[in-house]
């Protein structure tokens, strides 16, 4: 092997090792009782399973952290997505939202899932169970729209 290639590879490997020592800011799961979407709103089992599989890792306090989520630089990406995801929508804290925020969020869910903006593409790459079929997306969209109607009438 040419010497410079070897040196370059060693440098990359060294860098990979060094970045492991930087903290990722990985968020913790802090369960809140009685506020999660299923205890506040009617969520059919099928829809519940879909959002648990495809959304909860970033949008709830039930995030599962697979082994590679501990390894930089993936750990940084996971931390960023989960922190950002929860800030926009936390299914575990659904009950804390005002009526208006519920309506707005349901509309966003309907749009983001219908237009295939959610789940994030990079997540689907690593989690085949989040690769929602057309029927799955339709189910979630329909549920979000119906739930919005109900919240509106409340």
């Amino acid at each position: 092997m040419r010497k410079w290639i070897m040196n370059a590879l060693i440098a990359v490997a060294g860098l990979f090792v060094i970045i492991q020592f930087f903290p990722s800011g990985r968020p913790q799961n802090k369960p809140v009782t009685g506020k999660d979407i299923a205890s506040v709103t009617e969520v059919p089992e099928e829809v519940g399973n879909l959002i648990r599989q495809a959304c909860f890792d970033c949008h709830s306090q039930n995030t599962r952290f697979p082994w590679y989520s501990y390894v930089a630089p993936v750990s940084w990406l996971v931390a960023k997505d989960v922190n950002n995801g929860r800030k926009n929508l936390d299914f575990s804290k659904w009950g804390e939202l005002s009526k208006k925020d519920k309506l707005k969020t349901l509309d966003e869910i309907s749009e983001m899932v219908g237009e295939e903006e959610m789940p994030l593409k990079i997540y689907i790459l690593m989690h085949s169970e989040a690769n929602l079929k057309k029927e799955d997306r339709d189910l979630i969209v329909q549920w979000a729209d119906e739930t919005a109607e109900k919240v509106f009438e409340e």
Partner: peptide, 8 residues
């Protein structure tokens, strides 16, 4: 319902 969401 959609109008409320969009306005917000």
């Amino acid at each position: 319902v959609k109008m409320v969401s969009k306005l917000d």
